[in-house]
Design a protein around this nucleic acid. Structure first.
Lengths: 221, 221
DNA sequence: CAATATTGGAGAGTGATACTCTCCAATGTC
DNA sequence: GACATTGGAGAGTATCACTCTCCAATATTG
């Protein structure tokens, strides 16, 4: 398989494939001569994955590279892989510039609303986990925006999240560790957009079926 | 309140405030003289909101502008506002370049897996809604990536999403239409990161408490 | 009232990201 | 043997979100 075939098989322009090769998002093909390298199914798969992570998952190329590296790491338990994936994802959405929070003195606040909330639910998570900081930031942003996101509503969301988390974990294949890691990492990234879409649709359904609309129906598409 | 006070009150640099004014993300202050304009609480609020939408919600400035416009639209029912918000959000995450799908012939596929799935659940959503296309794209990406996202797993996610959607809709204030629209639109954008974080934490909790780890514990933070 | 600071406005510059284009000689293909 | 393709590298492009520089016209302060 030549580079043009690879391009055709995936729908990614040749120039972009070359760029990905340069940026080490795609492993080099087997060099046949100075002007030819052979690509195979592994390249097609990888390329598809890169596009899925960036286009659907919304990751930057740098983040996608980290996530792919986590998948290919050979000696990693699924739990560790999940940690790596979650950490990789946090590298990019925002560089929290410690703006208005009066509690951000030390590098890691030992106690915060999120930590208390999570502990109160009996969830066992690492107290130093950056996801907790992310939750703090998001929760505070909701407060500042005037959304009434109180503990009760949070608890309902957490119930739903727990259900989702259970489904996530249950669907991890127990065949090979490799497959498990793959599922965990990709599931973390690629299922998010699915859940976001489902939430939007559920909102519509609930709003329509309970007659919350004050006057008109949906706007035409 | 001068521009420097506004800057100080929000933590946003003066140059950036000027930029937002130029880009119409912030309404102009009351002009007092040729070199002075007065800003008030509404500017502080708006600026805070812009930062929340972009930093926490991950929106581009263009999308944030559309979302804010939806909030300020006076004659809009909450349902319509939700539609506007959802539509605004779709403008940017990906410009679906109709790559590998063999089913993308007409502009809007009249029937798709997502549409069938949603219909099968009895959810009432507009069949032309772009969120359905988003769901199709995300679902297909999961398939291509080899995640076994079958209908059963989807059904569980949909159950959780319905719970979330119910909570969303229930928490819409019934006081003024303005407040309702605000809650709906901001809730759509700002609660997403909260849910993502909760999902990550729930995954960890479930994984730890069911002992899915094969060897080691969590990596240190 | 004079020295100094700040403002609005506009334009240009910056750095990051993700490509896309151009060239080239070496090779492959018909 | 003519023509197309390839790998490799560099440079160019477009978008985004700022950030910087300038300026003369005010404001503020001593």
């Amino acid at each position: 398989m030549r580079i043009s075939d690879l391009s055709e098989a995936t729908g990614v322009p040749v120039a972009t494939v070359k760029y990905y090769l340069r940026e080490r998002l795609l492993h080099p093909g087997e060099v046949v001569s100075r002007t030819q390298a052979r690509y195979d199914a592994s390249h097609v798969e990888r390329l598809t994955l890169v596009r899925a992570l960036t286009e659907v998952g919304g990751l930057s190329l740098a983040t996608a590279r980290r996530v792919l590296a986590a998948i290919e790491e050979p000696d990693l338990s699924p739990l560790d892989a999940m940690a790596v994936a979650q950490r990789s994802l946090l590298g990019e959405p925002d560089a929290p510039p410690e703006d208005a929070g009066p509690s951000c003195d030390a590098a890691g606040p030992p106690d915060s609303r999120s930590r208390r909330f999570v502990a109160g639910r009996g969830w066992q998570v690492h107290p130093g986990d950056p996801v907790l900081d992310q939750l703090d930031a998001a929760w505070e942003a909701c407060d500042r925006a005037g959304l009434g996101l109180d503990e009760e509503r949070m608890a309902r969301y957490a119930d739903a999240a727990e259900q989702i988390g259970r489904t996530d974990v249950e669907s991890v294949p127990r065949t090979s560790p490799q497959a498990a890691v793959r599922q965990v990492v990709l599931g973390t990234v690629l299922i998010d957009p699915v859940l976001v879409a489902l939430r939007r649709l559920a909102q519509q359904h609930v709003a329509v079926s309970t007659g919350s609309s004050s006057r008109s129906g949906m706007l035409g598409p």
